[in-house]
């Protein structure tokens, strides 16, 4: 017997690419279903016809293709307007780094249409970018490895004089190599320049244990923070299994982060704990990580809380979570008829 009728909510989610380097969408959707708060209708938003989430019909009710981020905000807004006319979306949760810029930009327009998002501001989004991270850390009092943005190979020696070897050579968008000598650094510079263009970022090497924190900020304070250490890593560098940790330093760091920056939305802090225990922020991902379903297992359903915040409800900060909860990722073969694939590819809707 139902105590009361649950409210109908239509939530659209991107990042349905639950592949070997997975997007967080499917995990976010599972978390929403687990919350049992609402009478849910989940709309998948996909870029490619083979994103597995499209075909998971028990948890994703229907999926629409949306234009690639590179098509820009006007194409995205036009497509979302069409979808909204069909589906009457309450909340959109974007999950790709590459699409966030566009979703943040059109946030106000979506709101006018009645679609809620819960995203960081453009300033916050850009401040935590790889190229600006050091300045960001300095401003807010976080430990961040020193770095130097360089345009020429001639600049490596002055950077190494400052940081010493080994140092990390990073591409503008992706990829990083640890270089132990000048020759290795030069080689990495050429390789990354050819692939991603200039500038190249040279970063101080910080050794220690890598830990990650999935967190949610409401714009003022931290609502939830779950620290996790990867136990097994795939050849693509993604977590295959991980475990929640008891680590008040990391929780405090996440709290300070949300408070200092006024962070709104989900995030993942990639942290290196040095041997003497200092937490260096290596990267700030401005969205939920792919392992976000572990927060549900740990007792803090971050995606469901984000939906409540997006809808304007207040959510009080979580205090407890289960330490020692693990996730072990697995792959699962869905069986699909070719018609479904054709339907998605040609009509952009299923």
């Amino acid at each position: 017997m139902k105590a009361k009728q649950k409210e109908k909510r239509v939530i659209a989610v991107t990042g349905l690419n639950a592949i070997d380097s997975p997007g967080p969408g499917v995990a976010v959707i599972r978390a929403l279903h687990d919350s049992e708060e609402w009478d849910l209708r989940i709309i998948g938003l996909s870029y490619e016809a083979l994103e597995p989430g499209i075909y998971m019909n028990d948890i994703v009710h229907t999926t629409y293709q949306i234009p690639y981020p590179s098509a820009g905000t006007s194409a995205l807004l036009q497509r979302l307007t069409e979808i909204h006319a069909e589906e009457n979306i309450d909340v959109i949760i974007p999950n790709f780094d590459a699409e966030l810029f566009n979703f943040i930009k059109i946030g106000d327009k979506l709101k006018e249409m009645g679609i809620h998002t819960f995203l960081p501001t453009l300033e916050q989004f850009e401040a935590r970018d790889k190229l600006n991270l050091f300045a960001f850390g300095k401003k807010h009092g976080f430990l961040v490895p020193k770095d130097k943005t360089i345009f020429s190979i001639e600049e490596i020696p002055s950077a190494s004089a400052e940081f010493g070897y080994p140092l990390v050579v990073k591409g503008k968008y992706y990829e990083a190599t640890v270089a132990y000598t000048l020759e290795q650094a030069q080689k990495a510079f050429h390789k990354l320049q050819a692939k991603w263009g200039l500038p190249i970022i040279v970063q101080e090497f910080v050794s220690g244990t890598e830990v990650n924190v999935a967190a949610l900020g409401d714009g003022e304070q931290c609502i939830s923070a779950i620290p996790m250490r990867k136990l097994y890593i795939t050849d693509k560098g993604k977590a295959w299994a991980g475990i929640t940790l008891e680590d008040p330093t990391l929780i405090d760091l996440a709290k300070k982060f949300c408070k200092e920056t006024g962070w709104r939305g989900g995030m993942e802090l990639e942290i290196m704990r040095t041997l003497d225990g200092k937490p260096y922020i290596m990267e700030v991902n401005p969205r939920f990580p792919a392992w976000i379903y572990l927060t549900v297992g740990a007792g803090q359903n971050q995606p469901a809380s984000l939906v409540k915040l997006a809808l304007g409800e207040s959510v009080s900060p979580f205090t407890d979570y289960h330490v020692g909860k693990m996730f072990i990722r697995y792959s699962w073969d869905l069986i699909v008829d070719v018609e479904k694939f054709q339907q998605v590819s040609a009509f952009g809707k299923i």
Binding site: V338, E339, F341, Q342, S345, A346
Partner: peptide, 15 residues
Amino acid sequence: ESGFVFNPTNGDSFS
């Protein structure tokens, strides 16, 4: 009729 083509020999699809 909706313009789908499927080649069962190699699995390619077209529109």
